[in-house]
């Protein structure tokens, strides 16, 4: 993984690292479960595959209190403006995980009704493939996001 060039100053460098570490430790997702992937997202938060050990079990209903938007499911043309509005309401720094095939690329539904990939509407940091991705896949995606932030590759 290529590292983004950090600051040359030891004080702000350590501060940056601390801030990045803190940002990954309790990243609250906004509940944006749309379809089948939402079920697997809830399963990831449930007891068997526990998101609470990463500080993420609180799915905030209000986007203003959330850091991470996991777009879980297929985004229809009618839903796209709503998605954008929720994304805009989130405060910086914010990240987006596109969960599942439908969110990443339109999935198996290459037709008039779906936005072919949610990255046409919001900027995406991590794409998690699967239909639906199992909790382990989603967890891998979330941890990759954490790693990317901590290392400095994903900069917001």
């Amino acid at each position: 993984m290529a590292r983004a060039s950090g600051p040359s100053n030891i004080v702000t460098g350590v501060l940056d690292k601390a801030v990045n570490w803190a940002r990954t430790r309790s990243m609250w997702p906004a509940s944006f479960g749309l379809a089948c992937c939402a079920i697997e997202m809830m399963a990831t938060g449930a007891a068997h595959n526990d998101l609470a050990r990463f500080g993420m079990e609180v799915f905030r209903a209000s986007p203003r209190q959330a850091d991470l938007m996991i777009v879980a499911g297929r985004v229809s043309q009618k839903m796209a403006p709503v998605l954008r509005q929720v994304y805009d309401q989130m405060a910086d720094p914010k990240w987006v995980i596109s969960m599942g095939a439908c969110a990443s690329s339109g999935g198996m539904f290459n037709n008039y009704a779906l936005v072919q990939g949610v990255d046409q509407v919001v900027p995406v940091d991590i794409y998690v493939p699967g239909c639906p991705p199992g909790p382990q896949s989603l967890m891998h995606g979330i941890l990759s996001l954490h790693e990317g932030i901590r290392v400095g590759e994903i900069v917001r």
């Binding site: 749309l34 379809a35 229809s76 009618k78 839903m79 037709n111 009704a113 779906l114």
Partner: peptide
């Protein structure tokens, strides 16, 4: 409703 309309019948 219609926020999850996927056009499955057309697909």
């Amino acid at each position: 409703i219609g926020y999850l309309h996927t056009g499955m019948e057309k697909t």
